[in-house]
Amino acid sequence: MLTQDSQPLVVDSAWSPLAATIARVSALDSLLAAVVLPAPTADWLRISDLLDPTAQPVWFDELLTQIMARYSLRERRTAATFLFGSYAWYVMASAIASYLSDRRVPSIAIEDMAIRFDVHGDEPHIQVALLTPGFAALPDDPAANQPMVTVCANLDELREHLRNQIETHMQVIINFLSTQVRSGPRGQWNMVADTCAEIALWIGHQMGDQELACAEALSLIKVAGSPMRPSPTRYMTLTEGDHCETFRMRGSCCLFYKIPTTNNCNTCPLLSEDERIERLRTWMQHDHNHDHDHSHN
C-alpha cells in the first residue's frame, strides 16, 4: 500500500469513513481534490442530469465555445478533446488516489457524482463531488463491517472493481461525445488509459513510491478485454546526469498542438521515439522542480 507516512487511517466521520480518505488525498494536491457531499448545493451539477438524453445539452455547447475562445481554437472537436481530457482526469483522480493510498474505491457512477466547471484558468478545470458514502474496500479495512462498504476479497478484485467503475463511467461519456462531435472511441479510450497512467505516476511522486504506483496503473489498464488495453500507453525512465525520472508515454494525442502558440507535447505519439526522448532529456536538463504537467509532458 502506498503510504505518505505512518499515521493510522482516520475513519471518524459524521457521514462516511470515505470522507476521511478523500480529505487525505485532496490534501496531497489540488489536482487530486474532491469533496464528499450528501446533498449538492445548487452550484453543483449532477452528471446524470447533464447527460439526460431528454435534455438539450446547452451546457456542452457553452463550454466548447468558452474553451475555443480561451485557446483560440477553430474546431469543436479539438475543444471537446481538451474538455474530455480534463474531465477524465478530475473524475478519476480521487478514485485512483483513494485506491492507492487507502485501498478504498468510491463510487464514480454518473448518478453518484456532481461537478462544477471552470474554463478560465490555464486549462479546463473541473471540481468533483462524490454523492454517496459507499465505497469498496478490503476485508481488513477499519470500516469493512459497515453496511455502506462493499468488501472485495483481495487486491486483484478491488482493482477490478476500480477498473469497472472507470470503464462504465467513461463509456457513458464517450457515447455522449459521439452524439455531439465527430470523434472515434479508440482515441478517447487511449486518452483514458493515458490519464490513468499519469494520475498514478503523479500520486506515486506525491507519496514517495512511483514504482509501485506505475505497476498498479499498468495492472489497471492492461487487462485482456479492456477498451484501455490496446492503447500503447507506457512508462519510460530516463537518466540525465544525476537526474532520473519516469515519464508517462502517451498512447493518444491530446491535440495541444492545435493551440496557435504551442507545439506537440514532449511525449506525443505523433512524434518519433527519438524525438520524444531528445525532448525529455532536454526538459530534464532544466530545473523544473517536478512541476506537474499532466497535459503537456
Score class of each variant (00 low, 15 high):
residue 115 I to E: 04
residue 124 P to Y: 03
residue 136 A to K: 08
residue 6 S to Q: 04
residue 285 Q to N: 13
residue 43 D to A: 10
residue 22 I to C: 02
residue 61 D to A: 12
residue 64 L to P: 08
residue 112 D to T: 00
residue 277 I to T: 10
residue 66 Q to L: 13
residue 49 D to C: 06
residue 31 L to F: 03
residue 245 E to L: 13
residue 190 N to V: 03
residue 200 A to C: 08
residue 207 M to C: 07
residue 119 V to L: 15
residue 184 G to T: 00
residue 209 D to C: 07
residue 146 Q to S: 09
residue 148 M to Y: 01
residue 239 T to V: 15
residue 68 M to K: 13
residue 63 L to A: 14
residue 129 A to W: 03
residue 42 A to L: 02
residue 54 T to C: 00
residue 195 T to Q: 06
residue 185 P to N: 09
residue 22 I to R: 03
residue 234 R to N: 03
residue 71 Y to R: 04
residue 277 I to S: 09
residue 9 L to D: 14
residue 154 N to G: 08
residue 261 T to D: 11
residue 177 L to Q: 09
residue 114 A to E: 00
residue 232 P to C: 02
residue 173 I to E: 11
residue 28 L to Q: 08
residue 94 S to F: 04
residue 221 I to Y: 01
residue 202 W to I: 11
residue 114 A to Q: 05
residue 14 A to M: 11
residue 21 T to A: 10
residue 84 F to L: 01
residue 55 A to Y: 04
residue 155 L to C: 06
residue 132 T to A: 12
residue 20 A to G: 02
residue 203 I to W: 00
residue 50 L to T: 06
residue 239 T to F: 12
residue 280 L to K: 12
residue 176 F to G: 14
residue 28 L to W: 15
residue 141 D to P: 10
residue 222 K to Q: 06
residue 258 K to H: 08
residue 87 Y to Q: 06
residue 164 N to R: 12
residue 241 G to C: 04
residue 137 A to T: 00
residue 109 A to W: 06
residue 237 T to I: 01
residue 17 P to N: 00
residue 67 I to C: 10
residue 236 M to P: 01
residue 232 P to T: 05
residue 168 T to F: 10
residue 192 V to Q: 02
residue 288 H to K: 08
residue 205 H to T: 09
residue 97 A to S: 02
residue 197 A to N: 04
residue 99 Y to S: 02
residue 196 C to D: 00
residue 44 W to H: 08
residue 200 A to W: 02
residue 269 P to L: 03
residue 168 T to K: 00
residue 169 H to R: 15
residue 39 A to W: 09
residue 297 N to C: 14
residue 121 G to Y: 07
residue 163 R to A: 04
residue 277 I to K: 13
residue 24 R to S: 09
residue 294 H to P: 11
residue 215 A to G: 12
residue 202 W to V: 12
residue 181 V to Y: 07
residue 105 V to H: 14
residue 282 T to S: 15
residue 119 V to D: 04
residue 76 R to W: 09
residue 62 E to F: 13
residue 297 N to D: 09
residue 120 H to I: 14
residue 103 R to F: 00
residue 81 T to C: 04
